[in-house]
Amino acid sequence: MKPGNQTNGALRIAGLTHAVSDRPIFTDLEFTMRSGESVAVVGPSGSGKTTLLMCLLGLIKPSAGRVEVAGADITRLSTRALAAHRRRHLGVVFQFGELLPELTPLENVALPALLAGMNHQKAYASAERLLGDLGVPKDNTTTGLLSGGERQRTAVARALISEPAVLLADEPTGALDWTTRDAVASTLYSLARDRDCALLVVTHDPAVAGRADRRLRLDAGKLTEVA
């Protein structure tokens, strides 16, 4: 059983506040996500969506508040413990995929598992299965030669290989055209749901946000539920 399942939520933030040089970015944010639930965070540019995402990843230490991932408050963890916790419980999909273009998709997907010390046969098997589910070619084509949609689906597969309790996606369709966007968004949501993984998507795109179970709007430093 995953630690995330032992608590009320896979991801919970409480009283989350962050300021840069006395300029508040957001104040007293609260929300909880269940396993298998999807949440979209929308908001205008500069509202602090990416900063919130980085707080959830533990890349930025908030000014105040708690960020509980799989039951542990990551704001109180040491650097080493945070890295280990992130490796076990968090997956992330970046806007531009951030893949290694010289590697094949299979190698790209297996890489985090290999870095985490997983048995390589198991890592490649998992990567192959994920890529199959996502419809990405598994031949020896390098990732740099894939289409934008294929690359982003590879990025989704890479984020899921460690079977995270929480999947964070930062504008995952931001660099894609309309057609590809729908396909990637559909895959992202369905895979997270199927794997009982909490999915938080930061996006500008109403269509992508519309697929989430809940939508939150970050504006003027406050998080509000969108109907």
């Binding site: 990843l57 890349l59 890295a83 280990a84 992130r86 490796r87 968090l90 997956g91 992330v92 970046f94 951030e98 893949l99 290694l100 273009p101 890489l111 985090p112 598992a113 870095l115 985490a116 890479r158 984020a159 460690s162």
Partner: peptide
């Protein structure tokens, strides 16, 4: 730097 995003997830 292409590897850096990966190391966030994998602590490598």
């Amino acid at each position: 730097p292409a590897l850096m995003p990966l190391t966030i997830q994998a602590d490598g």
